[in-house]
Design a protein around this nucleic acid. Structure first.
Lengths: 130, 130
DNA sequence: TCTATTGTCTTATAGAACTAAGACAATCAG
DNA sequence: CTGATTGTCTTAGTTCTATAAGACAATAGA
């Protein structure tokens, strides 16, 4: 069962964070067809947010055709988004973990790391465009 | 002169994106004391947003003691946030670029990459906590 | 001094997001 | 059938964010 995490400092709407964590779990293969998502009330209990916020996330995912709610049962995974090969992540993870350890050792906190990745991503995109 | 980029799909408020890009440039050493930020009107011209949005970002940075506005001149860097060694980033960049190339080759798009880094960051934090 | 540039401020409007509190219908276990 | 669980829906209100349009004071340069 997937567990959700909210980063209140990120500035991203909670319902978006939940939806994206599901999308990413689908891409990574952590979630597969027929897997069940936590019930709305379970999420509410763990994250201390409003049921409507969870509902909005699940409806968004339903709108994308990724999950389907079954009244009386819960919300289940329907399909997986078109994406990269399922096993790709396990191989990449090792290299990333090693680099993250390096970055931490250099004194970067998590926020700096994500920002650094984002800007480097943009920079290299501009490079290859030039 | 720093250039700002907005990601409308990120769900993060534009004023927060601008403020964070300045903070990160300060951490990386891209911006230093007495450097000038783009004028409010320059940013408005490039990003097609409201002056008040830029103003809000600059006020936030001013509140943090990072920059100061000088009427008639512009907004300038005052101090740098307590952070990691300035040269740390240049060394880390190489390894990151290599890993990003790998990730792209595996079929991951930018959004997946950032999500992957975020979750790996959280996972490894939980690991070391356990 | 005069003018253009710049930061700063005000007021009003609109939209998105989250919360609050409650209700209903479908499903499953007993 | 009955009760508990679950997804779904409604209405209302608050806060945050962004926009719009305009005005003022300080500064630098001609």
């Amino acid at each position: 069962m997937i567990e959700f995490h909210l980063d209140t400092r990120s500035g991203v709407a909670p319902y978006l964070q939940i939806a994206r964590q599901v999308q990413q779990a689908l891409r990574m293969g952590t979630l597969q067809a027929d897997d069940q998502l936590p019930t709305v009330r379970e999420v509410v209990g763990k994250l201390a947010i409003n049921p409507n916020t969870v509902l909005k996330a699940y409806r968004e995912l339903e709108r994308e055709g990724l999950v389907a709610g079954r009244p009386g049962q819960g919300t289940f995974v329907v399909g997986t988004p078109a994406g990269p090969p399922p096993g790709a992540y396990t191989r990449l993870r090792g290299g990333l973990v090693r680099w993250l350890r390096d970055a931490h050792a250099a004194g970067l906190d998590d926020e700096s790391i994500v920002a650094f990745v984002t800007t480097t991503l943009r920079d290299s995109a501009e490079e290859s465009a030039a």
